[in-house]
Design a protein around this nucleic acid. Structure first.
Length: 102
DNA sequence: ACGGTGACGCTCA
DNA sequence: TTGAGCGCCACCG
């Protein structure tokens, strides 16, 4: 396990409150690599901290749910469980529950 | 070392 | 409003 950018990603995501979501781009920006949104997704795909880090709270910038290692369906379920509504693969009230790290 | 691929994002037609 | 194209960074064969 390397202590580097990836670790920062996990650390940042851990700060997202229950019932809120953030985006890959926002995370990338928070760690100082605004263009590394893809890399963030790649890091989460590995996700050594599976239950510890709420990676399901990371969605696309356009409000789409995005992907998930264990399936998009599972991700939607977890989000719904936190009170987050999902309409046809998109986050409902995305603007309201979006969490910015700034 | 190199090229392909992916839980993405932005622009343009 | 959708879809296609290109750019980005990190991981993997």
């Amino acid at each position: 396990m390397k202590i580097g950018v990836n670790h920062l990603v996990y650390d940042i995501i851990r700060k997202i409150p229950y019932g809120r979501v953030s985006t890959y781009a926002a995370v990338a920006r928070a760690i100082g690599y605004p263009r590394a949104a893809r890399a963030v997704g790649n890091a989460l795909n590995k996700n050594p901290y599976a239950p510890h880090v709420p990676c399901h709270r990371i969605v696309k910038s356009n409000g789409d749910v995005g992907g998930f290692a264990r399936g998009q369906k599972a991700k939607e379920n977890m989000l719904k469980q936190e009170g987050i509504k999902i309409k046809q693969g998109k986050i409902f009230n995305f603007c309201n529950i979006f969490y910015d790290f700034s």
